[in-house]
Nucleic acid binder design. Sequence first.
RNA 1: GGCGGCGUACCCAAGUGGUUAAGGGAGAGGUCUGCAAAACCUCGAUGCAGCGGUUCGAAUCCGCUCGCCGCCUCCA
Length: 467
Amino acid sequence: MALKIFNTLSGEKELFSPLTEGEVRMYVCGVTVYDSAHVGHARSLITFDVIFRYLKFSGHRVEFVRNFTDVDDKIINKANEEKVGWEKITARYIEEYYRDGEMLGLLRPTAEPRATLHIPDIIALIERLEAKELAYRVDGDVYFPVERFAGYGKLSGKKIEEMEAGARVEVDERKKSPLDFALWKSSKPGEPTWDSPWGPGRPGWHIECSAMSTKYLGQPFDIHGGGRDLMFPHHENEIAQSEGAFGKPLARYWIHNGLLTVNGEKMSKSLGNYFTIQEILQVHDAAALRHLFMGSHYRSPVDFSTEALEEAGRATDRIHETLARAGQSLKPGAEAIPEAGLMDAFRSEMDDDFNTPRALALIFDEARALNRSLDEKNSKGLEGRAAALRSMCDALGLLHSGYFERKKERWLKKGIVNREEIESLIARRDGARREKNWPEADRIRQQLRDKGILIEDTPGGTLWKVK
RNA sequence: GGCGGCGUACCCAAGUGGUUAAGGGAGAGGUCUGCAAAACCUCGAUGCAGCGGUUCGAAUCCGCUCGCCGCCUCCA
């Protein structure tokens, strides 16, 4: 068994072997912090969180770097709109981003560098490119001449001539090719500015990733990831800059996650068809969102809808229900070893380019088998199998403690019922049941049901949960 | 226009040359239950957009047709 990864660079699944045995260096493009992150960002975040988790799960030491782009036109525009400094904008959204990440159950990367804290590294890289005649100045701007880099287009499979012919951009006459991109931009008054050999200005978008990835991970490093939409031009430009500057590959495996769509169209700010992560998490559990994403392969598009999310939520309920049930009937404190056969099966699914849909199928198969054993009061091998189920879910980040309690909280917050009301209705119903007053007991149950509360009579007493 | 991808049951979705086409949701029937809920059991595509072809054998390879999407512009 060995991990295979689909490498965008080759267009094929390849056997993954890190540069250093047992160690993986991974860089993923993060977000530009000018607005709240939406569910599309969440997909990318969760995809690479799972990859991070699984690489660790399979015994690697992982250096995982994800950046913040904290200097950009959109940030400046937002600052101007609100008449505040740009640092206020980036600070606000970085803070929001950390809160989102925590709620999504993301593992923290090993480093989360910001562009503005790496200006010297960026300048040094541009100088290096300039020395190799891979940069030219136009007024206070510095551009990268794409036709001077032979491999331009190798990641996205595009050809310079074809792109120039079909260019839809308004052509900047000062550039040698419409595809040339800015390494450094001169700044207008009031914009973020740093001194540089080319005059006061700020870095272009792509250069920060080249500078920071290599600074933290060396060159080449093992995995570079990001959303499909970053493949061109962003990642192509990163390759041009880094490989142009150092004459060696930037990254060995390129991973791109598929995009999130809404009614079949890409979720994006410009289309206005997006939900922020916060909006969604007020109504749904992060585990359900993650489950929704895990249900499709990371490279496929996923169509987002609240119906799909609710459906994923019902599936997530089942897993947590099973886990809770298994937890109750196991000896407390017993340190069980996950059942080896199950773990092997899980690994072989995940080793196939992180095939989470198949891994989920395995999880459900085992959930059913476990429930069956529990129904039959057959405790043989139960601990090991429950531990395996738990471990598989954990490797996907699906284990969110307090899952049902959060579900209750979300419902109670709507103000339709409160706990006291539920408890007293249940007490009254229990009284009716003791007297075998079934019509009254059923009437109370219906009353609760109308308020979204389901009653469950168990040997240990009456429990309630949210519908 | 160029490049890439997708079309599998009511819905979502794996599978990409070879036993009965995973799994989830919804639905139907059943076991359990005072009745429920949960759980479990059973049933759901002789067929994988359509048409041709290659092959002993195709959802899986090739060709054409139809439909949808992404990138080529900031974008996870």
